[in-house]
Nucleic acid binder design. Structure first.
Lengths: 353, 353
DNA sequence: TTGAAAGCGCTAACAT
DNA sequence: ATGTTAGCGCTTTCAA
């Protein structure tokens, strides 16, 4: 019985039993007489012992019970994006049921900084999750591989040794594009997610699309073309945020030869475009149609309801949780691709006469 | 050299040195010949050893390097609140510099559920942070106390054994109230944050204010009275979200004897009220003035800029990080109270004639 | 049903 | 500068 916090040994001594018996009293992982357990618990209360020290348990079992979640970006930005939040929420819920905790790991921020957070290198975790895709030769993924940490990549490219969970964004974007074409639109502009870590902002040449490093961005461009849309203008944004969408909207719509529709790669960008249109006195969809992607709830856009491609965000998080469980059991889960669905709102309509 | 992942012992054996020497090669916490280090690192590379197992290190040092952060609510809700996000962001940044990781712990959700997440009871953590206040006899705080986990409570009531970081919301709210009074407003309604875990929604009797359990809510009410405002109507919301503010706005403004000003306990609530006013065809601030609290950036409210009481959110997170550092060093940090500042925007004006 | 003993992987006194 | 030794707190065979 040391002067520090009591240990299981102290409790066992006080209760007059062996350490292993005391352990059983707490874990319930073996036969133990009810009376003995009582005695141990009483001793624990007496000593102010609040249960086995997790550190000891973890070393012994080789498991930390922790899932490291690398958010795709600086927290502030990542967490202003309801898409990440909802996935994270679904994930935490599922992991919570399995008694796993989520360790937040900041992803790569500006290109100047070292691309790998120290936590990736040395935090205790049983599994890692990359919340927003992985680039080619991703340094974070490389580090996790070297450590032998099994990993789930959300919206990543399937590779032999990582599990992936994603959505069929290509098909969804194609549906959205087709919807606009069916409405008669031909002069369609596109507001895109970032191409890469450089996060440029502004109109880009169509050729540059091929250079986009981020897979989500690439796939949504591909879907757009599948749907028969060759954009008259492409605006790259540095992040999926309302203000960048608004900037894009101003740049694209404040001119005589403006497009009749704007197809955006995210809902936040799209809602920024809607706000910019309102600001410019343009009617939506009378003068310009706007469509997004994600299926977010955007109460402040009222009375408008954004036309969008809805993806099952919380379900995505839950699927990631399931993949984590698989990896913990030593299996390699099959890639998951969740379906998406075009949801027509009030922001798209026939091309103006 | 087992068939599992290599351990430090394997590396030491391969390099032909003792385990302790190998340890030094990685930690650098002692004298070691450059050539020896080289040899150890070479052996590590050869074996695919990527550094000391954190679990062993943690047990040995008695430190997990983890800070458990209890978010005040279900993640989904909590993370839709930019206030929590910005504090969390500041916190993660500060802790990252000290090589500490953040373990996300869901706070109490609906009153039916058990109020304490299992992670609170048994996850490894050196310090805990309660991100949004603590109630009277808070069960989470109680559990942490029993475990002997030093704790920082954001916006909590100072108690001898917990550190606190907060803002002077009482004074800030008093400024906002005075601002409205100075503009001539007398019929002022209040839209409040939740009173307690029950999270009621709707107009409440003034007497009920005294029963509010959540300290932030209480203090903001007190400030309002300090500023000379006795609200004609109080609307309690179940969470600080735009849609609840909008609901409150509709309830309060859609009637002939409507108030001339609405003082809200958060910016999201206030912006909901502004949207409701617009919806009802009321001019802001021509027909009704609206003020909030927090100092958020609300681009989608443009062209309006909300009158608000700005609090230093990221700085608050950083201060929490500093308090954590203090606790880790065994000190008891003094309570921190950060200043706030009234920022007059375009949503408040003279009382209508 | 209980106890004795080994050891998870590492670090840090201490000795050399 | 390097090696020896002990032990962090726990779980888990194995034997009684």
């Amino acid at each position: 019985m040391s002067s520090q916090r009591p240990t299981l040994a102290d409790v066992a001594a006080t209760a007059g039993v062996s350490v292993s018996t005391a352990s059983l009293a707490f874990s319930g992982a073996g036969p133990i007489a009810a009376s003995t357990r009582e005695r141990v618990l009483a001793a624990a209360t007496e000593l102010g012992y609040s249960g086995p020290n997790p550190l000891g348990r973890q070393l012994r079992s080789g498991r930390s019970g922790i899932v490291g979640v690398v958010v795709g970006d600086a927290l502030r930005r990542s967490f202003r994006d309801p898409v990440s939040i909802q996935v994270l929420d679904g994930l935490v819920g599922t992991l919570g049921e399995m008694n796993l905790g989520v360790l937040l790991i900041p992803g790569p921020t500006d290109p100047a900084e070292p691309p790998v957070d120290p936590l990736v290198l040395s935090a205790a975790m049983d599994v890692a999750v990359l919340l927003w895709g992985s680039g080619v030769e991703d340094p974070v993924l490389g580090a996790l591989r070297r450590r032998g940490v099994p990993t789930v990549v959300v919206e990543g490219v399937p590779e032999p040794d990582v599990a992936t969970v994603g959505i069929d964004d290509r098909a969804g974007m194609a549906d959205a594009a087709r919807h606009l074409v069916d409405l008669g639109h031909r002069r369609i502009a596109c507001v895109s997610l970032p191409f890469d870590r450089a996060r440029g902002e502004g109109i880009v040449a169509p050729e540059r699309v091929g250079e986009a490093v981020w897979q989500v961005t690439r796939r949504r461009f591909e879907g757009m073309r599948d749907g028969g849309v060759e954009p008259v203008e492409i605006y790259e944004t540095p992040a999926s945020l309302v203000e960048h969408g608004a900037a894009a909207g101003r740049a694209l719509l404040d001119r005589p030869d403006r497009p009749t529709a704007v197809l955006c790669q995210s809902d936040l960008l799209a809602s920024g475009v809607v706000l910019a249109a309102r600001e410019l006195g343009l009617a939506v969809p009378g003068d310009v149609s706007v469509a997004g992607f994600d299926g977010l709830d955007l109460p402040w856009l009222a009375p408008d309801v954004l036309t969008t491609v809805a993806q099952p965000l919380a379900e995505k998080g839950a699927q990631v949780g399931r993949a984590v469980a698989q990896l913990l059991e030593g299996n390699h889960p099959d890639p998951v691709v969740l379906p998406v669905e075009l949801r027509v709102g009030t922001t798209t309509g026939p091309v103006p006469a």
